[in-house]
Design a protein around this nucleic acid. Structure first.
Lengths: 143, 143
DNA sequence: CTACAAGTTCAAGTGAACTTGAAGTCAACA
DNA sequence: TGTTGACTTCAAGTTCACTTGAACTTGTAG
């Protein structure tokens, strides 16, 4: 395999900052080799990998989850179209679930709130247990 | 108006931690009066307000946006059912947009990636300009 | 009167996903 | 020779939405 792309080339083509690329590498999402100078050199396949990372983020996956998904790809060979399809079909299900949740929220916006019943202890949609019993910081919304 | 609820009562009924309530107040999302002791006392209407905040978060709005929306409610009187409905109908549109975006992402997962064309410079779905030209930290995903 | 729970403020910590800045290396060009 | 420009590492900063902890005061029960 030839590792020929510099970090700035990958950055431009993928539309992702160099700092983000180093960060992804640190997190084990992508790999690089080093030129004699110590500079990073990337294989072309990294572009598709990054495309998938960006995509998965839009869908709402965390980098940790994405790392887990990418780890399922074969290590000893460049992934085929079929490998990528397998991944993407798993993600389609997640998107569908997310859409379904939004539909439910939408319905309760028009129905539940519109009719005036919106009170947290009665409306299961607004408070389905997950919010009350959550720990740690931040919202991590619609898990 | 009678401000009679203590912070722990509101916390229990709304399913939101006391610390979060103080935080919301600091951000101007809710209001309270003080008892002689210096303790917070809330009006009952705060419960509906919090319900809306929780809801809006699930939909994906930031607290800043929510503050902006809530500011549109009348100040000198307790909001009516109609006031809340007006807000919620605006949010329905946002949910619909978000759903539409997810549908697009889903389609490109099955189509674009499945067919093998996923390359960031060609596929407008994966890189519609917003990602390339972004500043500051974090993803703020699916704006 | 003494516990103890529940409230207060204010500063600092958390996690995710990066970015920014400092300080240094290396190759190429005038 | 010097000076850009692209690269390196490492530490620290940023945003959001809170939480946690320290130190202190108040209200209630026995």
């Amino acid at each position: 395999m030839e590792f020929i792309l510099t970090i700035s080339e990958v950055s431009k083509r993928a539309g992702v900052a160099s700092s983000a690329l180093r960060f992804y590498e640190e997190k084990g999402l992508i790999v690089s080799e080093r030129a004699g100078s110590g500079h990073r050199r990337y294989h072309r396949s990294v572009l598709r990998r990054i495309a998938f990372i960006v995509f998965a983020q839009k869908i709402g996956l965390s980098l940790e989850e994405i790392a887990g998904e990418l780890a399922k790809l074969p290590e000893n060979r460049t992934p085929t179209k079929k490998d990528w399809s397998r991944l993407s079909s798993r993600w389609v299900r997640r998107v569908e679930e997310r859409i379904a949740e939004l539909e439910r929220l939408k319905d309760s916006l028009t129905g539940c709130i519109g009719c005036g019943c919106l009170s947290l202890q009665r409306c299961t949609l607004a408070n389905p247990g997950d919010r009350s019993g959550r720990k740690g910081p931040g919202p991590r919304f619609w898990l």
